[in-house]
Structures are given as structure tokens and as C-alpha cells.
Write a protein that binds this DNA or RNA. Structure first.
Length: 125
DNA sequence: TTCCTGACTCCAG
DNA sequence: CCTGGAGCCAGGA
């Protein structure tokens, strides 16, 4: 039985390390590749809490140095978080600089560029 | 403490 | 193909 303080989170990951885990994964995303919130959540074992991953990204801008949050988009390859960057076009520009083509706020060839942490990082169970 | 919101997803119509 | 509702977790008011 989990202690009351952790019982709320059934996925029982240490809340204090959750952000660190998210950041650690994001940092490992190869240049020119992208992933989505759900994949990271799944990798961390939080499964259905993709929103929390996005929330972590929201807090990431205070990090020094900042993590490549622009490589994380939603499941459709849509740049849903672009408005949270310094400028509305910064996210797209950063991706373009890595060779990732973005059209209408959407990453083209998203399936090919998709980087799945659960596979790439080879989780042992 | 309760209520609300959100860089998400999934599922039913 | 599009829309709405529900589940999810952490912070802020």
C-alpha cells in the first residue's frame, strides 16, 4: 500500500522526479527528430497523463540551459505548444533549423521523424 | 481544502 | 471527417 501522500498518483512515480524524468527524455531526443507527449508519458509509465508532460514543458522554459521542447508535439505532429515560446514562430524556426519541415503548424513526414522513447531507449521490464 | 484550467488522448456518435 | 465528453496529473486561486 502506498503512503497517503502518494496514493493520489496511481502510477506511483515520485512526483518530485517526474519533471526531471520528462526533461531527461526530452534531452535525449535526437536533433532533427520529434516525439509527442503521449509517448513520453507512456515511457515514464504515467500512460494516460500526457497532459502532465505538456505541463512539464510549460515549466521547462525556466531551465538553464533550456531543453529542446520544440521537438515535442502532439500526436498529430501539430505544434500545439508554439504559442508558449518566446515568439509564435520560434518553435517552427527551431525545427526548420534542424531540417524538420513544418507546414501550417504541422510537421510533414511526422511518422518518419517520430522518435519513440519506449523503443529507442529500450526499456527493460 | 475545493474548484478550475491546460503545450493531451481516446472513444463514441 | 468532425465534435463532444471523460480521464488524466499538477499548480494556482
Amino acid at each position: 500500500m502506498l503512503p497517503p501522500s502518494l496514493r493520489k498518483s496511481k502510477t506511483l512515480f515520485d512526483k518530485q522526479n517526474f519533471f526531471e524524468r520528462v526533461f531527461a527524455v526530452v534531452k535525449k531526443i535526437p536533433r532533427g527528430r520529434v516525439t509527442n507527449y503521449g509517448a513520453i508519458a507512456n515511457y515514464l509509465g504515467t500512460g494516460l497523463s500526457a497532459r502532465t508532460v505538456g505541463w512539464a514543458m510549460n515549466s521547462s522554459h525556466i531551465l538553464v540551459p533550456p531543453i529542446p521542447a520544440h521537438r515535442v508535439v502532439n500526436r498529430n505532429g501539430l505544434l500545439t505548444g508554439k504559442n508558449h515560446f518566446a515568439t509564435p514562430t520560434l518553435m517552427e524556426e527551431l525545427l526548420a533549423a534542424e531540417g524538420v519541415e513544418v507546414v501550417e503548424n504541422k510537421i510533414t513526414n511526422f511518422e518518419k521523424l517520430f522518435w519513440n522513447p519506449s523503443e529507442e531507449l529500450r526499456i527493460k521490464k
